[in-house]
Design a protein around this nucleic acid. Structure first.
Lengths: 155, 155
DNA sequence: ATCAGTGCAAACTTTTTGCACCGCA
DNA sequence: TGCGGTGCAAAAAGTTTGCACTGAT
């Protein structure tokens, strides 16, 4: 619980290659660079963030599509303006965000395992009752960090 | 539980007008129609959904921007392909989203009251342990709708 | 040698903007 | 009657696609 440990235990590249092989795709150099870039990022990236680095736009988009199909990256639900991508949960670990509505800072957090499990159970049945197969969830906690709470008092 | 009851107790139009006035904007007929459309919808709408109805694209986009600034509507987190909009929480009540990661469709859902309350309790303490004062939360369920699950099988 | 993957450029989709006009405070 | 809001059309921004080429198996 608390701040996410963000422990990367598995070999991301080996796993990426395995996932791609499973759908008859190669782990080409461009795709490896793309994964490398996402791995180094501390937040989800939009396509052009990656393109600036090293690959042409069309390759970025095409490879992101393939990597998403393979389950290596996932499209992150953003505010709808751009599509953003991050490494898939299986490669990155499940976590939540604690967002300060005052200053906008975002912290990665984990929930206690029992709460997380109960949450997942509850949501699985809720989703099923609407005809959906649950694949995950996103929970953002909105709050005020101690700094912003303190400055509230000064107003 | 299940699909949101959409209980609207306050006068949405009066509140919208008040919020717009607060930032020196008028509650024009076009904006009223736009709010009306969102009010009737059971799920967030993308700009073209609204445009089809009655307003030109440019007016829809411009008015959505103004209404968002006023706090009347909010941009919903989608799968990043299109921006979707709904009435702000203060006008619409608290609810969650069931998002299809395949096609991007979003459904409004309520959680059973006891689960919602437990969730809030759990998160309040989690936030506090990171030095935050919780002010709210966003919970999105990610899944595949029946249509997308079916088309998976055809691949 | 074959075919998956690449890079360029052009097409396409979604969103924003310039400008002339309309109508309410 | 001045200025906020509108509608059209054109531009900009973001994403996808066609095609010829390259390189790994």
């Amino acid at each position: 619980m608390g701040v996410a440990a963000n422990s990367v235990r598995i070999d991301v590249h080996a796993e990426a290659e395995r996932l791609l092989r499973a759908i008859d795709q190669r782990y080409s150099d461009g795709r490896r660079r793309l994964v490398e870039t996402l791995l180094a990022a501390t937040h989800p990236l939009v396509a052009t963030d990656i393109a600036d680095d090293d690959l042409p736009q069309s390759s970025v988009y095409r490879n992101l599509t393939v990597l998403e199909q393979a389950g290596v990256v996932s499209k992150v639900l953003t505010n709808g303006e751009r599509a953003a991508f991050e490494l898939a949960e299986r490669l990155k670990g499940h976590h939540h965000h604690l967002v300060c509505v005052g200053c906008g800072q975002v912290l990665d957090i984990d929930l206690p395992a029992d709460i997380e499990r109960r949450l997942t159970d509850d949501m699985t049945s809720t989703a099923r009752s609407a005809g959906f197969v649950l694949v995950g969830h996103r929970l953002d906690l909105l709050g005020r960090c101690s700094t912003c709470v303190t400055s509230d008092r000064d107003d």
